[in-house]
Design a protein around this nucleic acid. Structure first.
Lengths: 152, 152
DNA sequence: TTATTTGCAAATGTTTTGCACACAT
DNA sequence: ATGTGTGCAAAACATTTGCAAATAA
């Protein structure tokens, strides 16, 4: 099975999510299930509004508030990561699903988002933190520029 | 002359800014001059609203819109850098004034912002970009955690 | 004179929230 | 039964914008 712009098989996530709800005494509702199922078959990086519109286009009527609330739940539970591209733009969400941490290169022309990871950068960050007696808990590295296609 | 939380002598910036206005055929207005003068004697990282309130407390009445417009001008002209701490929080501004580029460590408890720079990280970033045939134009690296004081 | 700039209030866009009702447990 | 979750509309919030009046060049 190949996947390119699509993520993780939704089936497995469903199960994990249902378990998550059970273990946290959260309610197992039709809305949550539908939102979660669809969130994991969205394109690689999607905004809350995108998901809301896709659901509605597919005749799944859930309120925007519930989409936001459920996405927040998924982020807290580490099912999704949040990516903030610009201060006043909508956040993007991406599945975590055991994938290793990565950073992003964002094309200023076409908006494409490339993921990459670099262990040396991570190490250097930790070293810099230690040097400053700073306890590093998380970080966000975004590189802006032009992707291969847009550069040509 | 020592400076800790305060930046760059405002006098020099005034001159540079007036030159900038002239060279770009922008108008030399009382509001712009006042905003710029005060912006460069603000604490190290300030929000647009902070500056607006400080001005007003000091009986300099300029509209919030003009503060925002002037800050934008200063950012475009590379007099100020913008720092986005969180998607829905106010942006912070910091003087550039020939200082080298740096990244930030942000304390999640007290909100303090430490500046640091690391040439090796910069180099590795460029290398990663090259590897991905990405033309790197700028980046933003934020490290979140606990500062020395808050960790203890 | 005339093109900018200003101030005000209204608009923006994303996300959150209060509240009454519906529903899972 | 009872505590959660949902939907709706309104609020929040930093920032931007339209427009008429003011002003620098």
């Amino acid at each position: 099975m190949t996947r390119r712009d699509r993520n993780v098989d939704a089936g497995k996530v469903d199960e994990l999510f249902e378990r998550f709800l059970r273990e946290n005494s959260l309610k197992h509702t039709a809305q949550r299930l539908k939102i979660v199922k669809r969130a994991f078959s969205m394109p690689k990086h999607f905004a809350a509004e995108d998901l809301y519109l896709v659901l509605r286009r597919e005749k799944t009527y859930v309120s925007k508030a519930t989409v936001y609330r459920t996405l927040k739940l998924l982020v807290d539970a580490h099912f999704l990561d949040e990516l903030e591209i610009g201060a006043r733009k909508a956040k993007f969400y991406e599945p975590v699903h055991g994938r290793e941490h990565h950073d992003h290169m964002i094309c200023l022309r076409c908006g494409d988002i490339l993921e990459f990871s670099d262990d040396e950068i991570e190490t250097k960050q930790q070293e810099a933190a230690t040097r400053h007696k700073f306890r590093l808990l998380s970080h966000s590295l975004k590189m802006f520029g032009l992707c291969k296609e847009c550069e040509e």
